[in-house]
Design a protein around this nucleic acid. Sequence first.
DNA 1: TTGTATGCGTTATCAA
DNA 2: TTGATAACGCATACAA
Lengths: 331, 331
Amino acid sequence: MGIREVAKEAGVSVATVSRVLNHSGYVKEETYQKVIAAIRRLNYVPNGVARSMVKGSTRTIGLILPDITNPYFPMLARGVEDAAITQGYLVILCNTDNNPDTEAMYLSMLREKCVDGLVYVSSSSSTDHVRAFARHLPVVWVDRMPVGVEGDVVAGDDLLGGYLATRHLLSLGRRRIAFIAGPDGLMTAEERERGYRLALKEAGLVPEDELMARGDFQFASGRRAMTEILGRTRPDALFASNDLMALGAMEVIAEAGYRIPGDIAVVGYDNIMFARLAKPPLTTVEQPSYLIGVTACEVAMERIARRELPVQKKLFKPTLVVRASTQGERE
Amino acid sequence: MGIREVAKEAGVSVATVSRVLNHSGYVKEETYQKVIAAIRRLNYVPNGVARSMVKGSTRTIGLILPDITNPYFPMLARGVEDAAITQGYLVILCNTDNNPDTEAMYLSMLREKCVDGLVYVSSSSSTDHVRAFARHLPVVWVDRMPVGVEGDVVAGDDLLGGYLATRHLLSLGRRRIAFIAGPDGLMTAEERERGYRLALKEAGLVPEDELMARGDFQFASGRRAMTEILGRTRPDALFASNDLMALGAMEVIAEAGYRIPGDIAVVGYDNIMFARLAKPPLTTVEQPSYLIGVTACEVAMERIARRELPVQKKLFKPTLVVRASTQGERE
DNA sequence: TTGTATGCGTTATCAA
DNA sequence: TTGATAACGCATACAA
């Protein structure tokens, strides 16, 4: 059953049915009621595909992110979806695992599906696919924008976050502050490291290689990195560039017989739900991930509506959440 | 640029272009190459919307769940998406917060968008909306099917899970086993409770009201429920019907000065990522949530392909993961 | 092996 | 205020 059957049932033309459906044009109250009644009787639902075709818009946005299973992303995704639905947009979820091939595949599928825009939590290299895509469609970059690509971006201020975390440890009198870096080439991770270095420098300290190791933002890599570090030196603090790695590191620290924060104070990043449940509760840098998601989606929808808008860059300030992993007392 | 321009560029008809696009019908190798070349030159991407219209299929499935922010769901969602993509399906994510109005809204949007099928992690009441919807479209119910609705269902065996958890505590010699129930009317929750009661009964015990409280599967409600229970009695074990509530309860237990598992042994349900990071690590019933997601999506795609297939019910056995919250030793 | 023409279910333009 | 009809971009039946 399509608009045709409804028209016949109501004894009017398809044009009239379309008008009542879209509240467009003039239609007599009486006719309106007839059509509404027919729609009810037939339990008619307009076909969005046909509508999309003629309107040139699908009211759909794609959300591309590394892995919804990573505890940082659900909040962000939720923000995107909540914002989308307020304007009648639906969101298609795509997990890329940071795999460029997977990214490329989703990109081409989304383009073919004619999504109206994209919220893109990129993580790895900027491929040509991405660049080409961004020319065709509104793309809002979250947390990271590949080099050489212009566009809207919504992100947390990771430089500031790294700086705050490190400053906090310094203010506690810690001087040998270990650092677990994130994936190489990932802007988010690099900025946090820059913040770390900046704070050290301000304090007249020099970052030492033996205090640093690299992880991939997963729990297990936090364990590995901390094992590495403890194997060659003895820090009095740790700043891990995300909570998952911080949690992994804390396990290793405890297993090695050190006390947190007595021997080693620990700061993470993200304030995922379980940071406060850790033993001891983890001091961390909180990002307003829900808000970031909401904002990214809003920017995307704005741009969809007005392609010629000036480029927007929105940076959200992180805040330090101090807990027992640095303070020694219960939250 | 549509198929027309490609046809002109290649010097053939649109039908031929369509044929090479779909690998259908016969086309001479030479012609094939010409068309491919034209597609490349024009950087042509077929319009999926138009294709959907004529094919009557969007290669899209809707995933409806309570809240992606709840740590149980990301894995499930990931499973659904991974399965979907293997057959070229995209998935639309919908968070309902268990709100019937929100469910109804998404349902009607998804129907209008002409998704080919639905994976439905329902939680609350079966509304008429849902029932009407299920008649129009393949729906696979995950973990719960509203009463009065026929259809495919993929779920964990919660009765068995509740039984296993309780039996484990009983085998440890515990006799006063507290229980934190899930939301009223939620099948998953009720089955776990049935398992609890069954095990008690088998052991010749009678469930006591003072040992039971109800939560809503959120962390905070675990705290509340445990506070309630400890306020009126003194159990020697706790089975919480999900990990989040178990974690909340553990906090309260510790704050009250009891030792886990010495005074009170604790078992949760789900084996979310952070169960093993809790202090002490939480014994829990593991559901193969990723597999459940994969399977649900596969069943949905099967039914999309063959509507007349017999109804499928797939129940996944849970397994008990024993950790220090009941055993007293490190994992 | 290829081309022509029709229809998918809407919206929008133009006439009436 | 309403109706007839031409797109929208593609797949496909049928003809050639």
